[in-house]
Every structure is written in C-alpha cells, then in structure tokens.
Amino acid sequence: MLAIYKRELSGFFSSLIAYLSISVFLIVLSLFLWVFTESSVLEFGFASLDVMFDTVPVLFMFLIPAITMKSFAEERSSGTLEIIFTKPLNDLEIILGKFFANATLVICALIPTLIYYASIYILGSPVGNIDSGGVMGSYFGLVMLGLAFTSIGILSSTLTTNQITAFILGVFLCFFLYLGLDSVSRLSVFFGSLDHLIQQLGMLSHYKSMSRGVIDTRDLIYFLSVIIFFIYLSKVVIQRLK
C-alpha cells in the first residue's frame, strides 16, 4: 500500500497537478473571503469564518473530482492496471493507497487556510474574539467532507476509462450527496414523512452540525460510513473489471 501511496503522491507533486489545484483553490477562496464585497469578511465586520466554511465545500465539489479523476481512469486506459494487478498487492491495498494519496493532497490544500484563521483571530476586537471551538469543528467537518468526496471521486474514476467522464460523474455525485439530498428533503411531497431521513442521508446537515463546534459521534459515524461505502463500491467495481 505504501508503495502505491508514495507513487501517487510523488506523481501529484512532480507534475503540475498538486501546485495548480492547491493554488487555484487558495486564490478563489481568498477572493471570496477578502476581496469580493458581497462576501468579504472585511466588509461584513464580524470576526467570523463562516464564509470560508460555506465556500470550501463548493470548491471541493469541483477540486476533488479533478484531483481523483485520473487515479483509476488513466491506469485503465493506458493498461498499467494490468501491471499493478499482477503484482503481489490485493485490491484493497491499491484502492487505499490511492485514496490516502488523494486525501493527503486535499489536506495539503486546507492547511494554508489556517493563515486566514490566524488573521481573523488577530483582526478581532478584542484580539481573539472568534468562536475558536466552532472553527475547530468546522475544520474537522471539512476534513471529513474532503475524505468523503475523495472516496466518491475514486469510485467515479474506477467506473470509466475516460478522465472527463470520471470528473463529471464525481462532481455530480458530490453535489447530489452534499446539496442535492438536502434540497430533495425540502420538497413538499416528503413533508412530514421522509424529509428528516433524506436530510440525514445528505452530507450538509452533518457538516453543519459539526460546524457548531460539537463533534457528535453520529456525524462521525455518518462520514466514516460514507467513506467505507464508496471504497467498498470501488473494490467491487475493480473486481468486476477482471
């Protein structure tokens, strides 16, 4: 597993993928957070990072499928899958190696945003007037969301030999699970019957609940189940490819 992990990660950092995706992510985020008047913290006047925690999931929805799209699709189209599948590795090791490498890159993109937290912490009046508990919870939620999106991206990459297809499928699945299900639950047909269940199946409610700064085991179990579910599905798909 470690060999796969190392190769994937060095593949990201020896090509433009890592630098490009991290910088695009940070540039867009900083524009929203500091420059655009509708959403800028400086205009808003409150020492809060809510804008960031609302924007990052949407950016992740595009960024993560873009990172993960090549993980299996490229190996399928170039035939190198046959190389790694005839090496002494089991399928799960290969999937997990790729999953953790992609997840590492996602977390690398998040780390620089701690500077924004530090800035707001200092800009607050009095200094430190920010809901640090909430920020911690939100970061934890973002990491969970990032891992869940990564597992979705890995699955969509196993489903096709075309990276573009993998990307579009990944974006759609992330969107549907994060925002889609929540909106579906508010349709009037489900009112009073299935609305709560559908909302709980979506990621948004669990992410929001983490942002409040309380880490609820139910939310944690929800995210872990989503990750395990999509990794398991990837394994099933991979096995059927042979």
């Binding site: 020896s14 170039s78 035939g79 190198t80 899958l81 190389i83 005839t86």
Partner: peptide
Amino acid sequence: VGYLPENNPLYKDM
C-alpha cells in the same frame, strides 16, 4: 512470477 503484459503498458510520466 515476473510478467510482461502484451503491449507493455508503462507509466509514461515516470
């Protein structure tokens, strides 16, 4: 077993 597949797939960017 050492195996060389048909068409010899390789990682072109390594």
